[in-house]
């Protein structure tokens, strides 16, 4: 049973991250996702100091606020003439440092293990359950991550057209009167909420992997956004499942193994994707050459 809960959590995290990751990748904002997942640390600490609970609604809100602050900071730095990579770096390294300093200053009040924040401990998930009305309702983490998955899926379903257009052709979206800035911040807000919701199970840094890697794999497999969303969720879930067993076999970190498996699937897609794979394209070129040669005879 515990095994099932762990795998379920991993799949939920992978799915909710993968959905958002598709849009991040299409908008060339993968590194902004990375930045947000580091920069929510002060938000996590502050919200934890206030509420004293790791799984609470205010905590999600506090961290989401910090995610938006990160985005705003990056945007305003860029607008005032700082080049993009520097704007991202300066923002997230400083916010992350503030977070670490807060953790070390309030070490006694904050029962936050930095290692735990960064790498996550998914194997502890099944023991932290919700007891309500005397009944065991399953692990808290499953509920929290499940809620964010529903939230992300709902947002994407409701605003599919708008998100799609602002990802592929922002200028056109603006011309059609779509509030592109609003959808930008909506996406960033969702990324921060998802990061915070998942940080304890897969860790703040490995959330980045789930945000980027399955979506990048899916990007190599298809040219349609709807399929890309589906494939990214599928590869994300597959990485979670196989990662769990890999971790078992190697006696190593579950979250790390899930990331490694996501990387393995990406490499497979990179070489073998039916349309964009390196080997497939090479094979097609060889066949074309052979065909041309046989025509010449």
């Amino acid at each position: 049973m515990n095994e099932l809960w762990i795998i379920l959590t991993g799949m939920l995290v992978a799915s909710s991250c993968a959905l958002l990751g598709c849009f991040l990748i299409l908008r060339k904002m993968a590194m902004v996702g990375d930045a947000i997942s580091h920069a929510v640390l002060p938000g996590i600490v502050v919200a934890f100091l206030v509420t004293g609970d790791r799984h609470s609604f205010p905590m999600l809100l506090g961290a989401a606020a910090f995610g938006l602050v990160t985005t705003l900071l990056i945007e305003s730095l860029r607008k005032s003439g700082v080049q993009a990579d520097a704007a991202i770096s300066v923002t997230f390294t400083s916010l992350f440092s503030v977070g670490i300093i807060l953790v070390s200053l309030f070490a006694r009040q904050v029962d936050l293990d930095l290692d735990c924040v960064l790498y996550g401990e998914i194997i502890y998930v099944p023991w932290d359950t919700i007891i309500w009305n005397g009944l065991d309702w399953g692990p808290k983490a499953v509920w929290i991550v499940g809620t964010t998955l529903v939230l992300n899926a709902l947002a994407i379903l409701l605003f599919y057209k708008q998100l799609k257009l602002s990802a592929f052709d922002p200028a056109m979206a603006v011309a059609l009167g779509i509030p592109v800035a609003f959808f930008h911040y909506l996406l960033m807000g969702l990324v921060s909420v998802t990061t915070v919701a998942s940080f304890e199970s897969v860790g703040a840094i490995l959330v980045v992997a789930m945000l980027i890697v399955p979506a990048a794999t899916a990007y190599l497999l298809t040219d349609r956004l709807s399929r890309m969303l589906l494939y990214s969720v599928l590869t994300g879930c597959l990485s979670a499942v196989t990662g769990y067993f890999l971790a078992g076999a190697l006696d190593a970190s579950v979250a790390g193994a899930m990331t490694v498996m996501a990387g393995v699937f990406f490499i497979l897609a990179l070489f073998l994707s039916p349309r964009h794979g390196i080997v497939t394209r090479w094979w097609q070129r060889m066949r074309l050459r052979r065909d041309l040669a046989s025509h010449g005879e």
Partner: peptide
Amino acid sequence: LSVFFGLGIV
């Protein structure tokens, strides 16, 4: 970044 780091964690 993330895949290498994941590998490192493993």
